[in-house]
């Protein structure tokens, strides 16, 4: 249907991951008492950002091999 779904998936998760990482870096550590002292924004945001980048790269590589 002309739209490689890996691109919106990668972009959405990558953007959310990036926001979580930035927020995790600038937010007050006391915020993370709820999450057992773990900076869950920084950790999970990094995972999502990495996943998003991989998805977009896979889509671009597939587009390159098609053209």
């Amino acid at each position: 249907m002309g739209l490689d779904l890996r691109i919106p998936i990668g972009l959405l998760l990558g953007i959310i991951g990036f926001l979580l990482v930035v927020f995790g870096l600038v937010s007050d550590p006391s915020l993370y008492q709820r999450s057992l002292g773990i900076n869950i924004n920084l950790i999970w945001g990094s995972v999502l950002l990495l996943f998003g980048i991989v998805m977009v790269m896979l889509a671009r590589r597939a587009a390159g091999s098609r053209s």
Binding site: F23, S27, L31, Y32, R34, I40, N41, W44
Partner: peptide
């Protein structure tokens, strides 16, 4: 509400 701080709570 119990475990998630702002950020992942939005997610």
């Amino acid at each position: 509400g119990h475990y998630f701080p702002p950020g992942v709570l939005g997610l």
